[in-house]
Computed example of a mutant assay.
Amino acid sequence: MTRVLAAGDGFVLPALFDEALRGEPDVGDLDIAHLTAGWPTEPFGPVGPEGARVEEASGTEDDLVAALDGARVCLTQMAPFTSRVFDAAPDLQMVAVSRGGPVNVDLAAADRAGVAVAQAPGRNAAAAAEYAVGMTLAALRRIPLADRELRDGTWRGDLYAYDEAGLELDGATVGLVGYGAIGRLVARVLRAFGATVLVADPYTDEATASTDGVRLAELDELLRSSSVVSLHARLSDETRGMIGARELDLLPEGAVLVNSARGGLLDSGVMDSGRLPEALRSGRLGGLALDVYDVEPPPDDWPLHHAPNVVATPHLAGATKQTAHRAASIAAGEVARFLRGEPLWHPANEVARAHTEGVAS
């Protein structure tokens, strides 16, 4: 009997992990316990003491340690796997994180504890891509503004005036900063609208770009040439704050900026200095669509609360039922492969890679 912890939350429910794992073949008898964290009604955030914390986690170390008692494997989305948790869970051998990146897991601590960690890349690619395109259309055509004004009793016929009219994707040049699974899906949809798509991504080659019908460009060239720029890069030391005052100045007059990837890609200095709100008020920036923020939720004194031409949503790009089922299924598949002694498809740490290489040889 294998003891398993399904550590879900209000989105990827423990029951989804349970159902997905029980549907896998040849995993033996399972004793699956459930733990539910507070996200998404409670914001995620760092968990653990300074110097030993993990990011974007939900729940407490104490609750997780108690629930892991005797567990050999765990499926989770946001449970805080800190070094303290690994030290307190001697039976644990494998953690499957149902996210594209296991930022809620201290991978070095997992390696020290001999615990394999797997991840779930692409789980929300379709949802996030559709949302990015929707945010782009909303900003270009000022759909939220028109909806809000009409329901408040104001008929904004002036939005049909030339100076107030929106822009089309057909014939537009759209720049995608980052070209992973989400970016590629966004490009496919944009090309169907008739847009020309530029891509800035050091990990994408000319052959891939040519096959997809997009053109590679350096970031500065992309910014100068695009009437819409959508961010899809992963947040790292290299990409943090990559769009700042200098980059905003490169955009054409009236361009639209969309960020549904990570808040940290946008330099907080352009917000704190008032540079971004002023660019929106002056029309230098035609629109801004945000689904992610440095601080979630934004504080009461957030400079963009009353800025014009802003579309803002509360980190919802991946929020589809299909994403939740897909996330649970990918994580369950990794656990099943581990239990069957098969190579993992999505190893995230050295122990997981060693397991995969060992059973494949």
Rank of each mutant, 00 (worst) to 15 (best):
D106W: 01
G45D: 05
D152I: 00
E278M: 10
P308A: 08
G122C: 07
V310A: 15
L145F: 02
E238V: 12
G358D: 03
Y179H: 12
A6W: 10
A172W: 14
R353A: 05
A312K: 02
L198Q: 02
G48W: 04
L16V: 00
R84F: 03
G283A: 12
R340C: 04
A113Q: 03
V189G: 05
D212H: 13
M78A: 11
N309I: 00
D106F: 01
R184M: 15
R156D: 11
V27C: 09
T41R: 15
S230C: 03
S260V: 14
D62Y: 02
G45E: 11
D111E: 13
T356F: 00
G274K: 15
L248W: 14
A319G: 07
A66R: 09
V351S: 07
G274T: 06
A161N: 09
M78V: 02
A245P: 03
E50Y: 10
H355I: 00
V335E: 00
A79D: 12
L276R: 12
A125M: 07
T320W: 06
A261K: 13
S83T: 06
P102S: 15
M135I: 07
E218M: 02
V229P: 00
T208L: 15
L137F: 11
A328H: 01
L176D: 04
A233F: 00
I32V: 13
G269P: 06
N104M: 04
V310S: 02
T154C: 14
G287W: 08
S210Q: 15
V292Q: 01
S225Q: 14
L248Y: 12
G51P: 13
S227F: 11
P14D: 08
V73D: 02
A172G: 11
D267Q: 07
V115I: 05
T313A: 15
R337S: 09
S83F: 09
G23N: 10
G180S: 13
D9P: 14
R240V: 09
A255R: 09
G358E: 01
F193M: 03
R72L: 04
A307F: 10
S58W: 11
L304M: 08
G241T: 11
V95W: 02
S361A: 15
R240N: 12
L140D: 08
P46Y: 09
E164V: 08
R142N: 09
G101W: 14
R240K: 12
A108G: 11
A96P: 07
G213Q: 08
V197M: 03
F17H: 03
S227W: 14
L316D: 05
R326C: 11
G178I: 00
Y131T: 00
L185T: 02
L30K: 05
E130Q: 12
L222A: 04
W345S: 07
D18W: 06
G341L: 02
T136W: 03
P121C: 05
N259F: 01
S236V: 07
P121A: 01
E253T: 10
G100C: 04
A110E: 03
E56K: 13
H232E: 01
L280P: 08
P46A: 07
P277C: 04
Y162W: 13
A331K: 00
G178C: 11
F44N: 13
H355V: 03
R191I: 07
P308D: 10
S226P: 04
I243V: 08
G157H: 15
R148M: 06
H34V: 15
D205G: 11
G244Y: 14
V65R: 05
A331R: 00
G287F: 04
A89V: 04
Y293G: 14
